[in-house]
């Protein structure tokens, strides 16, 4: 069995978000890039499965659509334990084009894992689109993935409970919370071995972008806290009524 993990290269979750170019572009100056947290957990689960199934999983690959700046992120995935990486050499524009690009390298994999969303644009669309391009099933909101004998066992979180299901391979698993507990920290040995593992640069295919950013808006900044004297209930009611307009 072969597993492919789709990896999005995203700004560190503590990044201060700013925009340039008339609020149409995210300002990447000084940004620290990381593996999208869900994708990192997907990789963690793939490695756990590889270890526990003893030879059943012959290869774990990772793929990212992005420019050379995405390579440190892929190299880290290799250091954590992936066997091989692909970088599709173009900017990740919209979900449709990303899914179309990934579909090109995903053809001979049995399990394709995507995070439920990327922490940058929170699109939540690539996984589903990818399965359409490949014409294979997809399972969303996967909170556990297991291989027992030759069966795939999946848990999905649903409102108020869980759903256990199985699927044929190949398929796309769109993973979320629960898929693995904590991402792994690369070891020195892993970092050393990552030097020698293949990081293949793939030319992109022609594909149309279906959507385009018009502009971004930051949420309004929080208003300062107003202190009202405990004696002055009337003022409080007045403010809640006329200023905050909550009562």
């Amino acid at each position: 069995m072969k597993i492919l993990i789709c990896i999005s290269n995203v700004p560190d979750t503590t990044t201060k978000i700013k925009f340039t170019g008339d609020s149409t572009e995210f300002d990447v100056a000084g940004v620290q890039w990381i593996i999208n947290p869900w994708d990192e957990l997907a990789l963690t689960r793939a490695l756990e499965l590889k270890e526990k199934t003893n030879g059943k999983i012959e290869k774990i690959s990772v793929v990212s659509v992005g420019l050379k700046t995405a390579e440190p992120t892929l190299r880290k995935a290799l250091a954590i334990g992936a066997d091989e990486a692909f970088r599709i050499d173009c900017e990740a524009k919209d979900s449709n084009s990303v899914a179309a690009q990934i579909a090109e390298v995903a053809k001979d994999y049995d399990i394709i894992m995507c995070g439920i969303e990327a922490s940058d644009y929170n699109g939540s669309a690539v996984g589903g689109m990818l399965s359409e391009f490949l014409n294979i099933p997809s399972v969303s909101s996967v909170s556990n993935l297991d291989i027992e004998n030759n069966d795939i066992l999946i848990s999905r979180e649903i409102d108020g409970g869980a759903e256990i299901l199985t699927t044929k391979i190949p398929f796309v698993a769109i993973v979320q919370k629960g898929i693995a507990i904590e991402p792994r920290i690369p070891s020195m040995r892993g970092i050393m071995m990552a030097r020698k593992k293949p990081l293949n640069v793939v030319s992109p295919i022609e594909v149309e972008n279906l959507t385009e950013f018009v502009s971004f808006e930051l949420p309004p900044s929080k208003a300062a806290c107003k202190m009202i004297d405990a004696e002055n209930v009337k003022e409080l009611v007045d403010l809640l009524h006329n200023e905050a307009k909550v009562i």
């Binding site: 390579e71 440190p72 190299r75 880290k76 250091a79 904590e182 920290i185 690369p186 070891s187 020195m188 970092i191 030097r195």
Partner: peptide
Amino acid sequence: TEEQEMIRQAARDYAER
């Protein structure tokens, strides 16, 4: 280098976690 950054991050992750 990419590797030096990776080691710094690994140490930081272990310390902070």
